[in-house]
Design a binder for these strands. Structure first.
Length: 263
DNA sequence: ATGTTTGTTCCGAT
DNA sequence: CATCGGAACAAACA
């Protein structure tokens, strides 16, 4: 049982030999042996529930990928973490890849799950989210509607692409102050948000021109072919040239004819 | 070369 | 003290 002198001895040796060494990869050997019980989602986190009340959480951020691969398949681009798995007598891998390194992976215990959930506002797909609650969380964030929609602690699950399309579909200017929104508009925004998100799920997500997003099998999504205003030139409703500007430092597309700022 | 990017967090300003 | 907004994180691409 190492006490201070033993720990000190090791720390000094490690410091002498390893300071300035670069960690190229990390391998976790065997006997982790936890089973993946179920995979779910909390906001934009992918949650692997493991045995013994342990959870493995991945956040893909902008460029993360999780790929199901055969173990002998050649390396993928930008591999960061490889899990080797056994199921029904066969082995395979789950590969977490990310070019920009904005993605995250962490292991947490069950009691931290509630803390994770508490960071987020109501999930946009939750049946329990009423228009009244939706409106009240938006209004509580005293800013413009686009900024509020993108704040995951206000309402969780809407990203920049879908916020643009949602505001276009709801004929709402992105700079509309949340406190000027009425319940009828909140209803419209909520219904349209659910419709857009569900449609994009049916299309298995959006893959932009950088080809970064792929599903767990490496296949592209198709929802980019159904964008309403994001990355579009002309309004699909009236033909007006779509405006592009940075709002809260995020690329924002809107139709100046259909989405008039009124307040 | 510079500007852009699907997300989130942190820090300074208000 | 609470809240907001922008910079930063890092890499690839046009």
């Amino acid at each position: 049982m190492p006490e201070l002198p033993e720990v000190h001895t090791i720390a000094v040796d490690l410091n002498k030999h390893l300071s300035n060494a670069v960690i190229k990869s990390i391998e976790i050997k065997n006997n982790f042996n936890k089973k993946i019980i179920e995979v779910t989602r909390i906001s934009k986190n992918i949650v692997l529930e493991l045995s013994s009340e342990t959870f493995l959480i991945f956040h893909l951020a902008m460029t993360g990928r999780l790929l199901i691969r055969k173990s002998d398949r050649p390396n993928d681009d930008w591999e960061r973490i490889i899990l080797t798995l056994a199921k029904n007598g066969k082995t395979g891998q789950l590969r977490f890849c990310d070019t920009r390194m904005f993605g995250k992976a962490e292991v947490i215990k069950k009691e931290m799950i509630n803390k994770l959930k508490s960071k987020y506002g109501p999930d946009i797909l939750a049946d329990s989210l009423s228009p009244e609650e939706f409106l009240s969380v938006l209004v509580a964030k005293r800013t413009n509607i686009k900024n509020a929609l993108l704040d995951q602690s206000v309402v969780s699950g809407i990203g920049n692409i879908y916020a643009n399309d949602l505001l276009w579909m709801s004929k709402t200017h992105p700079l509309t102050k949340t406190n000027s929104i009425k319940i009828a508009k909140a209803k419209e925004l909520l219904n349209n948000a659910k419709e857009i998100i569900k449609e994009a799920i049916l299309h298995r997500g959006s893959t932009l021109s950088d080809k970064m997003f792929v599903d767990a099998f490496g296949k592209y999504g198709t929802h980019q072919n159904y964008f309403r205003v994001y990355d579009q030139r002309n309004c699909k409703n009236c033909g007006t040239k779509i405006k592009f500007e940075k709002i809260n430092s995020r690329g924002t597309y809107y139709c100046p004819t259909c989405q008039v700022l009124k307040q």
